[in-house]
Design a binder for these strands. Structure first.
Lengths: 192, 192
DNA sequence: TCGAATAAATGACCGCAGTCAATTACTGGA
DNA sequence: TCCAGTAATTGACTGCGGTCATTTATTCGA
């Protein structure tokens, strides 16, 4: 039912990803062209699309991997006990996700799995992030009137909002971290 | 310094928008092709791009107009006094914004003005929505520990989150309105 | 070791957004 | 009314993502 993959297949695929990684390092994500990738990898155009459903599928791997590395770092750290800690903890993740407008757009597009069958890397990292955040909130350092999962979903909502406004000309003046602080203070430590 | 627009210009532009509106009604947003628009409008391809920076600029007008109509309706109604009212008030707006995955993607892409100089229709409607929501919260029926503007920003964040999860295979089971209710209860009426 | 079945790779081709030098239509002053 | 200057329009062309019938390589049973 499952794999019957030849060694060649894995090699080609790995080469494509490696070449793409190099190209991104050189020119950024938005400038990546599939034709450039296949040329450097020494394969035909069709081969690319035999390995990846579309260009987004490659981006999913590249960007998802980068996000996952940040989550590795974050998972190492102790659970944050204050909003300031929580915001500080997110700094590197925010940097990765907002390094280019194009990257943020891809993340938004792929962060939810379109179908159960095709959960990509980015969607998987979002699940992972959700679990990680839920664990932080289960320590009980923040609100207690709602469960940890809901707190985590709100965190994600505000994270997205802060990043979106970062790219908005009308709001770019305020730094992302400061906005996060404001949001999360109100979300996690309401004072009614 | 400003306009020197010929009548012809306005006519062509209006015709393009009218044709596009018809096409969308027939086949949906995602299926819209600029070539189909210019063919029906009886102009050349280049004319389209002389009037609109790119295809997104046309979508901005079509979708932005549809959103604006909903805001007209919402602005008529009295300020909501409960979370349930607030959620119910949003139902038509949610329907418009999530009618197609493609529409939601365009909205996310264009909801923040990329540059002050080029604030589009969708970005303008988001500003309008923000002002409207702020006015609701100024009535003081919800939280009082944070100002109305912040409440409005949170509302927008949760609105986006609810729509995003609506398109996510892993979460599609729960209806949007129900999710909104959960989020907004926690956001607007914390119970610590 | 051979040959049929299957997997991988190929590249010419297509669809569609977006460009631009050339052309046509309009305007306002003489 | 004529004509220079400007605005609007044109359509062939480019760039790039994605497809598919054909060719080439690999596997595995006899």
């Amino acid at each position: 039912m499952v794999k019957q993959l030849q060694k060649r297949t894995l090699e080609t695929r790995a080469r494509l990803v490696a070449v793409a990684t190099d190209l991104v390092a050189e020119q950024g994500y938005a400038a990546l062209r599939t034709e450039e990738v296949v040329k450097r990898a020494g394969v035909a155009k069709g081969t690319f699309f035999a390995h990846f459903k579309d260009k987004d599928a490659l981006m999913d791997i590249l960007i998802g991997t980068a996000i996952d590395r940040q989550l590795d770092q974050m998972a190492q750290k102790a659970a944050p006990e204050t909003v300031a800690d929580l915001v500080a903890l997110h700094a590197p993740l925010l940097t990765v996700m907002t390094q280019e407008r194009y990257v943020f757009d891809v993340i938004l597009r792929l962060s939810g799995a379109a179908a159960i069958a095709e959960i990509g890397v980015i969607a998987t990292t979002f699940e992972r992030y959700h679990r990680l955040a839920t664990r932080w909130f289960e320590t009980g350092h923040f609100r207690r009137d709602i469960d940890a999962e809901l707190q985590a979903e709100g965190l994600q909502a505000f994270l997205t909002q802060a990043m979106a406004l970062h790219f908005c000309a009308l709001h770019r003046s305020q730094p992302m971290a400061q906005r996060m602080q404001l949001y999360l203070q109100a979300w996690l430590q309401p004072n009614v």
